[in-house]
Amino acid sequence: MAIDPSRFETVQYTVENHVATVMLNRPQRRNALNRQAYDELEKAFQAAQADSDVRCVIVTGADPAFCAGEDVKEMMTGEQKDASVARLTSVRPKPTPAAMAVLECDRPVIAAVNGPAVGWGMELALFADIRIGSERAQMGEIFIKRGLISDIGGLGRLPSLVGASKAAELLFTGDVVDAHEAERIGILSRVVAHDTLMDEARNLAGRIAENAPLALRYMKEGLRISAGQDYQALGGWVSGTLGKLFQTEDHSEGVASFLEKRAPQFKGR
């Protein structure tokens, strides 16, 4: 069945001048991802991949945030959490489908980071080939604060951007860095004024889209090969490990402390 982006409720998808723009559109939740948003993000990138007119993709969020990660109130409690555990503890754990849709897109992907990008929001930015940030951008791998581990972005791509030691520091502490620090350590290519971010992203995407489409795809494939990373294998390990961590007391405490706006008290069980 063909994907109809006009039916999306949590993602806006447009194509203009060979550039697809995927905008997370849950501003009231700071674009935090629930089950529907994950599904529509995946389908948006599948739509871009299937469209021969698309030569570059921009992913961003509706102000005031890029993406605040998973919607903890929805995804980490009750039936939604039970469903996540059931999927992650299946016989053969698989990578997050939305992650693979972004990573396997063979067009260049630009993340226009317009505000906080934390948790899976930072993962999404890391999945992109190029990241431009507004002065309001904030970035953090905060999974450790919830008693969890990062996805493919933090474990597979962050070390190649900032080095193994800095990546370990960010992953182990869950620290959030501002736009200028993210640029200094290599997460962001550059920082621009907030009001010009999308113009800068579209200008860059336009310059990329002017080039030979097949050569662009092979160039991206070459970069992927040179990185030597097996995202399917890493994603499967992440899913299986998260399935275990979701069932720990520490994860429940991490979620409770977030919802109650207090410091967590982890017990190591």
Rank of each mutant, 00 (worst) to 15 (best):
L88W: 12
P264T: 10
R29Y: 10
M198K: 02
A182V: 05
P116K: 00
A112Y: 00
N25L: 01
Q247V: 07
L170V: 02
A112T: 05
P95C: 08
R207I: 07
D53V: 14
A209M: 04
D106V: 08
R269L: 04
P93C: 06
V238M: 11
E200G: 11
I130K: 04
S165K: 15
E79L: 11
R87T: 07
V191D: 01
V162Q: 12
G154I: 13
I3K: 03
G222F: 14
F246T: 02
L216I: 01
S226C: 15
R7A: 14
G174R: 04
V192A: 09
V15M: 05
A209K: 06
E123T: 14
D63N: 08
F8S: 01
A193W: 12
F66K: 01
D63R: 08
N17P: 02
V22C: 03
G163S: 14
A68K: 03
N34F: 01
L124Q: 12
R207K: 13
E123N: 15
H180D: 02
N17F: 06
V85D: 07
P64S: 00
E9Y: 00
A164L: 15
F266V: 01
R190K: 10
V22H: 04
V72K: 09
R207L: 11
G61R: 04
L170N: 10
E221I: 11
S52F: 09
A256W: 03
R190V: 05
C105T: 12
A47W: 00
D129W: 04
Q265H: 11
M198T: 01
V15Q: 05
K267P: 02
R107W: 07
T60Y: 03
V11D: 00
F172I: 12
M100C: 10
F246P: 08
L197H: 03
R262W: 07
C67T: 00
A205W: 02
T14V: 09
I132G: 03
A65H: 07
L88M: 15
C56W: 07
A182N: 10
K244C: 02
R92S: 14
Y231N: 15
I152H: 09
R146H: 13
M219P: 01
G69K: 02
V192N: 08
A201M: 07
L161G: 09
I130R: 07
T89S: 06
P213Y: 05
D51M: 08
T96Q: 15
E104V: 06
G228Q: 11
